[in-house]
């Protein structure tokens, strides 16, 4: 399954690196990354491929929160976005 990671917060160095590191540790393949910094605010959306049998989404979210504790992090299943925004 695919999951969407969003990270928002004050820009510092190493956010993308820290998040990517967690993905690598959890055997998640990064498929796409969009990232921008606006007025000092960092906003990143990352789409990853998760092996469901190995890790639960909540577990990945918890690990990312630990890696970047000052940021607002969400990890959600891709299906939600597909269903909510498409007919």
């Amino acid at each position: 399954m695919k999951a969407v990671i969003t990270v928002i917060g004050k820009d510092t160095t190493g956010i993308l690196a820290a998040v990517s590191m967690v993905c690598a540790e959890k055997d998640c393949n990064v498929i796409d990354v969009t990232q921008s910094v606006l007025d000092g605010y960092f906003c990143m959306i990352m789409i990853i491929e998760v092996l469901e049998e190995n890790h639960e989404i909540k577990e990945i979210e918890t690990s990312i929160v630990e890696a970047v504790p000052k940021m607002v992090v969400h990890v959600m299943h891709e299906d939600i976005f597909n269903l909510m925004h498409r007919i």
Binding site: V72, H74, E78, F81, H85
Partner: peptide, 16 residues
Amino acid sequence: MINMNDIMETISMIDE
């Protein structure tokens, strides 16, 4: 591909 605005919309719906 999922639109960035759609993602942010869903997240703010749940969060805020």
